[in-house]
């Protein structure tokens, strides 16, 4: 039996849709709906989470993320410039730092700064300092690579033009090159903020007082106190999406804008 290419494609699509429907149906049938509704979708008991999840959880998540990003951005810029330096020592330091902090889990960094620093130096940093340093140092490694790519994407002629006008190297970088590099990396930089927002949940390994809880810790606390199973964590997850999805849309907007203005 001879079939046209279009007929074959149509049959293939129908088969794929069929498999999908069967898989969903199997999943729904195998699910223990009673247990799920008591432990995951038990929205009747989560009243006490409000308004604390806004005023404490969400606010702290945003503060921790902003602190980490501030340090990550400045550290990342410094590392990116070091990595592009003509002085080999700077390049080695930057490369070593970036490889190290990209290579180890962020959780270990939190433990190191939360528990290691007090043990080693006998000082207990305030929690927001621990968070800022841990998140910021990890973020700096990732942001450095992003910014390095951005700095290298600025055409060579820009630096030549700036230098030809009598600008010293640092002035040309500050006034001409770095602003253009930032414009180029705005989309990936927004993605870094999304990653940071999620990484701020790792703070749960530190001993926090209730007013320091961020979303994840707030949700975990709800699990043990509300008797609604995992439902509080589901709510916390929803709050993350409230932050990350708009950021993601923003990144896409930056992307389409830079695609439009590209000459």
């Amino acid at each position: 039996m001879a079939m046209t290419a279009r007929q074959r494609a149509k049959i293939s699509l129908n088969v794929q849709a069929g498999i999908f429907v069967v898989a969903i149906a199997a999943l729904l049938l195998a699910t223990d709906w009673k247990a799920i509704s008591a432990n995951v979708f038990n929205f009747g008991k989560i009243g006490p989470m409000f308004p604390g999840i806004f005023t404490t959880g969400l606010v702290n998540t945003l503060i921790y993320t902003a602190l980490g990003f501030a340090l990550g951005l400045s550290g990342g810029l410094l590392l990116a410039l070091m990595k592009l330096s003509s002085f080999p020592l700077y390049r080695w330091i930057a490369t070593g730092y970036i490889e190290f902090f990209r290579g180890i889990p962020a959780l270990l960094v939190f433990i190191a700064f939360g528990y290691g620093v007090p043990l080693a130096f006998g000082v207990q940093w305030p929690i927001f300092v621990v968070v800022m340093v841990s998140l910021g140092m990890v973020a700096a490694a990732y942001i450095a690579e992003t910014l390095r790519a951005g700095l290298q994407a600025v055409p060579k002629g820009q630096l030549e033009a700036a230098r030809s006008l009598g600008m010293p190297q640092w002035r040309a970088m500050v006034t001409i090159i770095i602003p253009q590099a930032f414009k180029i990396v705005l989309p990936p930089l927004t993605n870094e903020i999304i990653l940071l927002t999620k990484d701020s949940s790792l703070i749960y390994v530190l001993g926090l007082t209730a007013s320091q809880y961020e979303l994840t810790k707030f949700g975990r606390d709800g699990i043990s106190s509300l008797g609604a199973g995992l439902t509080p964590l589901l709510v916390a997850g929803a709050f993350y999406l409230v932050v990350t999805i708009p950021l993601s849309l923003l990144a896409r907007k930056f992307e389409s804008r830079s695609a439009r203005t590209k000459r």
């Binding site: 055409p155 002629g157 033009a161 006008l165 009598g166 000459r263």
Partner: peptide
């Protein structure tokens, strides 16, 4: 170098205006 370049204007084939 920077002091010398102030006296010397340069015009490039690709213009190299600052787009921002």
């Amino acid at each position: 170098i920077d002091k010398m370049r102030r006296k010397v204007g340069m015009v490039f084939q690709q213009f190299n205006l600052f787009p921002h």
